[in-house]
């Protein structure tokens, strides 16, 4: 009797072990589910279409946008960014020395997991790491010179498909999962998580704005916003959405923000970059 009991427990454990890998969903399975949700819901739109955000749903705004794009307001930032990018540091080295492929056509692969530090790094973090390593002062994040550099670098990835890797390293997976937590966490006095607006309410109006789909949101960042009167990186946009639900926004370049960017960018894997872009 006792023997039977033990045997059945062993069998149970064994079957759990067998089933578990099937139950466990990693980034790859997430991608199929997340992109599948929007493809099913908006079957008239391709994955690349999703990168046009709210303009998929608002004819009037789309026309304004197309008019603006005849003389894109981010052109100057690309030019200035290229100049800054190619200007050597005091020690003669350049930004190009700190990136794969000299920093050209790599923006669609960021943020990346850094195996040395065990943390996620976006391009801004690498830019500042590069500056410090070469005896320069780090730039402030979110505004100014760093955004111009991002703008130029993103432009060299235009048309490339977003390709965020979560390498086979428990720390990388943990960072991705932490980003998922940040994404699905309700915050602020309004008690909203990102998904309340950008999944179930995507395509609908909220206080005069039509909501974009979560998948496809990252492809045009950094982006010029008329509200900012400048190009800004995605973490600046995240902060805006957090403020809108009454939350004290998370700190730019904090682990939580970087992990959020990692998770949020990954869900657009396979969609073409069209950064820099413009939004109102």
């Amino acid at each position: 009797m006792c023997h039977h009991y033990r045997l059945s427990i062993l069998l149970l454990l064994f079957s759990l072990l067998l089933v578990n890998p099937l139950l466990y969903a990693g980034p790859k399975e997430d991608l199929v589910r997340y992109q599948g949700y929007f493809q099913k819901r908006f079957s008239n739109l391709s994955l690349d279409d999703l990168s046009n955000g709210l303009y998929n749903f608002d004819e009037g705004r789309r026309e304004q946008w197309e008019a603006i794009m005849e003389f894109p307001p981010y052109e100057i930032a690309i030019e200035e960014g290229e100049e800054l990018f190619n200007k050597p540091f005091g020690n003669g080295k350049r930004y190009a020395d700190c990136f794969d492929n000299g920093g050209v056509a790599i923006a669609h692969t960021y943020p990346r997991f850094n195996a040395k530090t065990g943390k996620v790094q976006n391009i801004s973090a690498v830019i500042n790491e590069c500056r410090v390593a070469n005896g320069e002062k780090p730039l402030r994040y979110l505004k100014g010179e760093i955004v111009k550099l991002l703008t130029y670098m993103a432009d060299t990835s235009r048309g490339k498909k977003i390709d965020i890797q979560v390498p086979d390293d428990p720390r990388a997976l943990a960072a991705y999962e932490d980003g998922k937590r940040v994404y699905f966490t309700r915050r602020g006095v309004r008690d909203f998580a990102c998904y309340h607006c950008h999944w179930e309410a995507a395509g609908q109006k909220i206080r005069g704005n039509v909501l974009s789909t979560a998948v496809g949101q990252v492809t045009h960042f950094p982006s010029y916003r008329s509200k900012w009167g400048a190009v800004g990186p995605i973490q600046r946009r995240y902060k805006g959405c957090m403020k809108n639900v009454g939350a004290v926004p998370l700190k730019a370049q904090s682990d939580a923000m970087n992990n959020l960017e990692y998770f949020h960018t990954h869900m657009s894997n396979g969609i073409s970059m069209n950064a820099p872009g413009t939004r109102f």
Binding site: R187, V189, K243, G246, A247, L250, A256
Partner: peptide, 8 residues
């Protein structure tokens, strides 16, 4: 990571 602006 849960501050509310209204508190401030």
């Amino acid at each position: 990571e849960g501050g509310w602006r209204i508190t401030g």
